[in-house]
Design a protein around this nucleic acid. Structure first.
Length: 511
RNA sequence: GCGGUUGUGGUCUAGUGGUUAGGACGGUAGCUUCCCAAGCUACCUACCCGGGUUCGAAUCCCGGCAACCGCACCA
């Protein structure tokens, strides 16, 4: 359609607020940085998105399971995971080469007693006081990252002597669950543990609504596997083309991805299992969420950019008009055995497992992450478009917070029957919204803006039918505006099939 | 966290010390209308919060909160 435009950031956010998708937490008190509440439509959309993610990733194998662990973790956990280290090991960062170094190391010549207990500001002063140089590039432009720790910590227990933390990432919960999950499962690898839930970080500068939150929802799948035997069915994905931006190409100054076959990435040296999951996540973005494939980029992180325990890391980025560039919406990290090894040491428990045949291994972890809030924003960014005088949210029907709008053409004459249809549709398990306000065109417009894929209008012909079963109404499609007559049972069938998202073959079907 | 800019109904906004704080869109109710934001009538909703200056503050000053832009940060 001509005259179609996407929305700018402020306009997009205003639309989401106006339609009750989301708004600032504690709005009547002026809001709070980095905290947002989802309204009825937003909460439903978020739930649909989470379920779609689960169906796609957890549905990959019968040995992949979703759990619902605690959001509060005892201190021992975050100490073992390394999240607490920054408390006692503040880092300095080189502005030139972006290297990270422990403040203690950089300052040891000038301050042998160490830096324990010093504030970031005090360490910053020391950096000025002494001729401190970057150990990597020799630059003197060193700065202190702050605050030290982005975790929310608090006293735990009645005596208050212990401390606990809101989890800074959901992944830790899955690592902790591994031994129990191994016991209750069928003692085989790979074993997948998924968590969809909130994580909390006391971000220095929350920005851009859903992109840097202090409380945010992650969907993460941790795949525990035996590095010697893990062989997902790579041939089934080998011909897929992926828009990748590898490190070497980036260093040459390129920002655009190049299309590479999965096979060629393996020939480059990436493990088959890793590329298999790259394809799987890419297809989720493209086929389930419907992001335009030209806007997706699989951005490889270099050794200095990624966390040291990540052996391979690609961020899934998409180009968002509303935010003026590529934004990270997910990632895949090959973490080796770092996590189980850390928690093994921290807890004093042996977290290795004995496989069929008697071989003992400490499983490796492949982490597939997905930012639920960010992707909700991306769905709005790609889907919401202004077309002439109407605004349409082209949401995939299986993600839409409301499946169908039900209207009486004439409020007085047709409301009773429209209410009856609404009840029947809701009883069948679909989200249906009755609307008799304003003119018929206004109701269509309201539903379009909320991404409701179908509207049904009941009129005098509906009531003219001889039996209730033969009553038909106008079914109108959001994207094409095309109309057709359907009976209630035809409508229910249509809704049922519209709720089905694309599904891939499972790992098990290849066994 | 630092610097700059900003803060008026749900949304967009008019209003530079005295206004019944105006409009548009929106919402609600009624009338009308047999299919895409039509029309008519009525109604609804606002000066971010707290201090100060002043006879009088949406308007000037200070503080807070929040948003936007830039920098930094994002383990």
């Amino acid at each position: 359609m001509s005259g179609t435009t996407s929305m700018k950031y402020e306009e997009l956010y205003a639309t989401l607020r106006r339609r009750g998708i989301l708004w600032p937490t504690a709005e009547i008190y002026g809001g709070a940085q980095g905290l947002y509440d989802y309204g009825p439509a937003g909460a439903r959309l978020k739930r649909q998105l989470e379920e779609a993610w689960s169906a796609w990733f957890v549905g990959l194998s019968e040995d992949f399971h979703r759990i619902d662990p605690s959001e509060i973790l005892p201190e021992a956990v975050v100490r073992a995971s390394g999240h607490l280290e920054n408390f006692t090991d503040p880092e300095v960062i080189c502005a030139k080469c972006h290297g990270h170094f422990r403040a203690e190391t950089v300052l040891e010549k000038f301050r042998p007693e160490g830096v324990d207990g010093l504030s970031p500001a005090q360490i910053g002063e020391l950096l000025h006081q002494f001729p401190v140089k970057c150990p990597q590039c020799g630059s003197t432009e060193l700065s202190v990252p702050q605050p030290f720790n982005l975790m929310f910590g608090f006293p735990f227990g009645a005596a208050g002597g212990e401390r606990a933390y809101l989890r800074p990432e959901t992944a830790q919960s899955s690592y902790l669950a591994f031994p129990r999950m191994w016991d209750v499962g069928r003692h085989a690898l790979p074993l997948g543990i998924a968590v969809v839930g909130r994580a909390y970080r006391n971000e220095i500068a929350p920005r851009q609504v859903l992109f840097r939150l202090r409380a945010f929802t992650q969907a993460e799948l941790q795949v525990f596997f035996d590095p010697e035997t893990f062989r997902p069915p790579f041939v089934s994905v080998a011909d897929e083309s992926l828009p990748v931006l590898r490190v070497a190409r980036r260093l040459a100054g390129e920002e655009a991805p190049e299309w590479r076959s999965a096979r060629s990435l393996v020939e480059d040296g990436l493990p088959e299992f890793y590329v298999f999951f790259l394809v799987h996540q890419y297809r989720f973005f493209r086929d389930v969420l419907g992001y335009p494939k030209e806007s997706i980029r699989l951005f490889e992180k270099s050794e200095t950019e990624r966390a040291f325990y990540n052996r391979i890391q690609f961020d899934f980025e998409t180009k968002l008009e509303s935010l003026g560039g590529y934004k990270e919406l997910g990632a895949i990290h090959y973490r080796g055995d770092y996590d189980l090894s850390r928690h093994g040491k921290g807890s004093g428990k042996d977290l290795s497992v004995v496989l069929e045949g008697g071989r003992r291994v400490l499983p490796h972890v492949l982490e597939v992450t997905f930012g639920v809030d960010r992707n909700l924003w991306a769905l709005a960014d790609y889907g919401l478009s202004v077309e002439g005088d109407r605004t349409v949210w082209h949401l995939p029907p299986y993600l839409a917070p409301t499946s169908v709008g039900i209207f009486p053409l004439m409020k007085k004459e047709h409301s009773a029957e429209a209410r009856r249809w609404t009840d029947e549709i809701q009883k069948a398990g679909f989200e249906a919204e009755f609307d008799a306000g304003g003119s018929i065109g206004k109701r269509y417009a309201r539903m379009d803006e909320l991404g409701v894929p179908y509207c049904v209008t009941l009129d005098r012909d509906t009531l003219a039918a001889e039996t209730p079963e033969r009553r038909t109404a106008t079914l109108r499609d959001r994207d094409s505006k095309a109309q057709e007559r359907v009976t209630l049972s035809e409508l229910l069938n249509r809704l049922a099939s519209s709720r089905v998202a694309p599904r891939p073959p499972t790992l098990d079907s290849f066994e």
